[in-house]
Amino acid sequence: MSERLGFDHVTKIFEAPGSDTGFVAFDDITLEASPSEFLAIVGPSGCGKSTLLKMAAGLMPPTRGRVLLDGKPVFDPPPGVVYLFQQYAKSLFAWRTVIDNVMFPLEAAPRSQRNELREKCRDYLKQVGLSGFEDSYPWQLSGGMQQRVAIARALAADPQVLLLDEPFSAVDALTRMELQSLVLQLWERRKFTAILVTHDVEEAIFLADRVAVLGAKPTALKEIIDVGLPRPRDQLTTREDPRFLKLRHHLTSLLLARNPAHVAAV
């Protein structure tokens, strides 16, 4: 299987004051996502899931090991890898209108193509359900709508890989479901590689082809689970599927039992 994005024996150690060895965030993680795969990474909060994603985006170098994009090591943020932040409000440009936010990744293009690209951006906004809000400013929109703007901007960058860093954790439950369905729909249409980091087990199962489970500190890969639920997935029927519930049970128990040895000893 050819891989699109891979972590090859990645270890990340943060320098910690008063410690010679530093703080080990990950130890020897190897994991890959194939083209058009939806991979979810779940782990307890504070396990450094976002760090893993930032290394994938080239925003942070690993201490040991390599991050590979189409077989080539990643040093700086590579084109085609787009990062969707949890803090959408901080990621959007408040001084730009919605359409100009979406235009941002395309502004290096020659001036003659501007009008054509602008039309494209209108279409991206339509795809995320924001037609009519082109000339609004992000701060005039609700949280869910702001994340939709960020998604449209990500689409404009023509992603090969979309990195989703808990992008739905700051919105209300109903909006979260709408955004999940939206991302799924766009992913099915565009077939980019999606890597989602989340602490929400149900979200991971609902969206992903495979779920990688991270254990507690220092973080290592505990298990990779094939979801195998049929697509297209539906917020009601998929979540009621007995297989969904079984996976949820399994993953939740994995995450809750942070130290199985300890539990066994008791």
């Binding site: 930032k54 985006a57 080239g58 925003l59 700086d76 943020p77 084109p79 890898v81 787009v82 990062y83 932040f85 803090q87 901080k90 990621s91 440009f93 941002f104 990744p105 960058a157």
Partner: peptide
């Protein structure tokens, strides 16, 4: 400035 803003810029090269 929030690091998220600068990281956003970096991811768009």
């Amino acid at each position: 400035l929030d690091p998220v803003l600068l990281e956003t810029a970096r991811t768009f090269q």
